[in-house]
Design a protein around this nucleic acid. Structure first.
Lengths: 226, 226
DNA sequence: CGACAAATAATTGTATACAATAATACAAAA
DNA sequence: TTTTGTATTATTGTATACAATTATTTGTCG
């Protein structure tokens, strides 16, 4: 049995189960479902035009992520991310993003550096234009590229999840001229430090980058976003 | 719709799906399944005396944890924790356990402090006795109690997962007189710092505690354990 | 009218049937 | 012998049927 390891990478969006999973997940993270709403298998299945089987599988996965509470023989209930969860995630992310770029300075390849710089250039372009939706996507991409460059399956996994969980918050913070400009500048600084293989500086910058986002959030009033 | 939030806490071990999940998970984490082994639904179902349905649900959950790779229409393949994963986990845990006790100094209740001390007393007793299996359980309990005391759903979730992933390693390290004595002493010190609400000291001690375990592991030769 | 109990309905848990896809075996041709 | 196309088999993906459990309604009695 030779190495048939297939880098799965992205989630399965093509099977019914995958689509149902993404759909429910998005509905929870985007706030369309209220806290503790009961998710009935037949209802969701009917809504999406599929049978109960893929719905069940999706719900079981969401349970593991903590986005759904399953009470045996009773049902599945929405478990939204709370304001405190978001704050906790940002504090934890601050540490982990620091470690991430530290590892990245060690492991990143020339090719990955080029990809990062390309993302960065695009970001700077769209920052000038004030194209916030595109900017949000590029922000996500920049961080995901760093996660991969850390060469740590574990760290990548945790950070990707967190990154997803605070999607809505990130989208909100980036949609301000002041913060988007600052954020892109910080990305540039992090990139330069990583490229120069300066681990200490890169870590410090990455931690600060996340912390600045927290401050931005607190100015906003989290409850308004969630 | 009033607050029917039921603290789910532990995983579902009573439904078929829950049992199948625990079973496969244990078989992967304990190393009984080789890397990239194909997990066929019918075979596992037959082995455990259940149909494919609960097996499928369990496999989908394990996929999300990263313990199984699912290739659509092809099958599910074992994805074991590697030696590098373990090292990464310990480095990450070092940071997160530090933050955990920091929050614990802020949020822990008198009742939780008493519970912790009780665990600690038992640990000290069984350390003297050299009862390593019991000691392993108490070590797990001590950390879980701290996770809960952090009052952070998110941190608790991540740390609990990591804690589980390195089960085998922890069991191995604790089964040495020298390390077990040292470990229990460190637990006592952490407890005292948390009780005294000394966040800085508690964080420092917790980080060191995990780092000492890493050193112990490296002395061991990880490959022998995995 | 309210409390309790039985009957009924709704919902989840599991097993199985069928469809779609991928792997394998085998035969024919180069 | 190697290659390639096809038939067969095995396996997963989805739907549905049935069982077990829980929620709801309804009816009776006080």
């Amino acid at each position: 049995m030779e190495d048939r390891q297939v880098s799965v990478g992205k989630r399965d969006r093509y099977s019914l189960r995958g689509r149902v999973y993404e759909s429910i997940r998005e509905d929870i993270l985007s706030g369309r479902y209220p806290q503790n709403m009961e998710l009935k298998e037949t209802a969701i299945g009917a809504e999406l035009g599929v049978s109960r089987t893929p719905v069940r599988e999706a719900l079981r996965q969401l349970e593991l992520e903590g986005l759904v509470n399953i009470i045996p023989n009773r049902g599945a209930f929405v478990n939204r991310i709370t304001a405190k969860d978001v704050q906790d995630i940002y504090i934890i992310r601050s540490m982990l993003e620091g470690q991430c770029v530290r590892w990245a300075t060690e492991y990143i390849t020339e090719g990955q550096l080029e990809d990062l710089e390309e993302t960065l250039c695009l970001s700077e372009y769209h920052t000038k234009k004030g194209n916030y939706e595109k900017l949000y996507e590029l922000d996500s991409l920049f961080h995901e590229q760093l996660y991969r460059a850390s060469n740590s399956r574990i760290l990548n996994h945790v950070l990707s999840d967190f990154h997803d969980y605070v999607k809505r918050v990130r989208r909100a913070t980036i949609a301000s001229r002041e913060r988007s400009v600052k954020s892109t500048e910080e990305h540039r600084a992090i990139f330069e430090a990583v490229k120069a293989r300066d681990a200490d500086r890169a870590e410090e910058l990455a931690k600060e980058h996340v912390k600045h986002t927290i401050e931005c959030i607190q100015g906003y009033g989290l409850d308004r976003i969630l």
